[in-house]
Write a protein that binds this DNA or RNA. Structure first.
Lengths: 218, 218
DNA sequence: AGTCAACCGGAGAGCGCGCTCCGTTTGATG
DNA sequence: CATCAAACGGAGCGCGCTCTCCGGTTGACT
């Protein structure tokens, strides 16, 4: 009809339905298995052929971007909120704990935030927005005397990685096990302290540790 | 000739030469890439066909066992030596640091010690010998008042995992970066302390962190 | 109702992996 | 030197993965 309709036409109803199914399935699959689950898996979960997945998201990266666009924004908001704590130490502590929680709840987020293997640009931009906030968190907490003066912003990122890795390792056996180690690491980050702050939850027993090692593959 | 020669005959000279080459190649390959490098890789490194590798080591596990038999013994010796420190805290500290160093130097050792995906029995036996020593280390360090009283043996294993993961992450960019975090975690493990103990080495700068994220795949 | 572009599913090409099989080569032995 | 079990290498099978292609189907629009 009208020759000039270059803008995006809405999807056909079935196509839109499938698009949503795929996003939902991909979310679940990524959360459980990380960003490297197979496209077949996602298609199967969505009750759809692989062809359909590829038609809507011709590259894996596009699927990832569509899924995580808003979740990345949440991270930025989270970091910003950490700057509003009255006690700057609480800002750091809350940040480390919340960020680790996110990683444990969703393996996909972990892969996305700590690697640049997928979805390069978008993630990079997010990181660029978070970095200065983390540095400000560190600066304030050091000024208040609570955070040891010899750590810097990049150390915080590596702490996140460390704790996220631990969360990954123990997830299947004791989903809350990582919280103990957040406490431990935070005690290491304090400038000086008397008694150690109590650790959250119970330690793994020998059998649980065995189970962890048994089901983890490198 | 003599009918009853059931014992193992020595290998032909070329076969023995190849066996050694394969072990050497596998050692290098595992150290760099972990226990899941492809058999083709190992064969190529050894300058040998895959068939030859499989002839000598019909299952991957056998190759791993042959390679790590004595290295596992070294770990036991290491743990035992930690009990000889005059100050029990030094025992813990040295153990955490040495064990992490081993993991960073050899990715294969890391996979072997922290997972049960390969070489089940042998590793399990080794772990069974190490566990009580670690528990004794913990007990003594706690009795001396240096180690916080709320950690247990299994926590130490998870600390090893955490630091090993970090070593893995940063290895390519800054092979010594993990040492900072050993210091950090050890400060978290102390019962009480004044000034934080100085961290080893320089922190990563922003570009190095970027490089780490860029080359890591989950 | 009829038309047709958009959409669907899944077969299959291409790839790298673990592992096997077999025609050829080599070193030990008399 | 002749013999032959032992060892060699790599082609090849089966598998699971990514991504493409195409014959059949379906929803939007007249």
């Amino acid at each position: 009809m009208c020759a000039a309709a270059p803008a995006e036409r809405p999807l056909r109803r079935d196509a839109e339905r499938n698009r949503l199914r795929i996003l939902e399935a991909a979310h679940a699959a990524f959360a459980e298995g990380g960003l490297e689950v197979s496209m077949d898996d996602i298609a199967r979960r969505a009750g759809v052929g692989v062809g359909t997945v590829y038609r809507r998201f011709p590259k894996r990266e596009l699927l990832i971007e569509a899924l995580f666009e808003q979740r990345l924004e949440e991270i930025v908001v989270l970091a910003a909120r950490m700057l509003e704590h009255d006690d700057p130490w609480d800002g750091i502590a809350d940040f480390v704990e919340s960020f680790t929680a996110i990683q444990v709840e969703d393996r996909g987020m972990r892969d996305l935030l700590l690697s640049t293997a997928h979805a390069e640009r978008r993630v990079e931009r997010t990181r660029d927005r978070i970095t200065p906030m983390v540095e400000e968190l560190v600066r304030r907490a050091q000024a208040s005397g609570a955070l040891r003066p010899d750590v810097v912003g990049t150390d915080v990122a590596l702490v996140h990685f460390m704790l996220g890795a631990l969360g990954d390792y123990t997830r299947e056996v004791q989903p809350e096990a990582w919280r103990r180690f957040v406490g431990l690491v935070l005690d290491g980050l304090r400038d000086r302290r008397d008694a150690p702050s109590p650790l959250a939850g119970a330690p793994l027993d020998a059998e649980q540790l065995d189970a962890v090692m048994r089901c983890w593959r490198p």
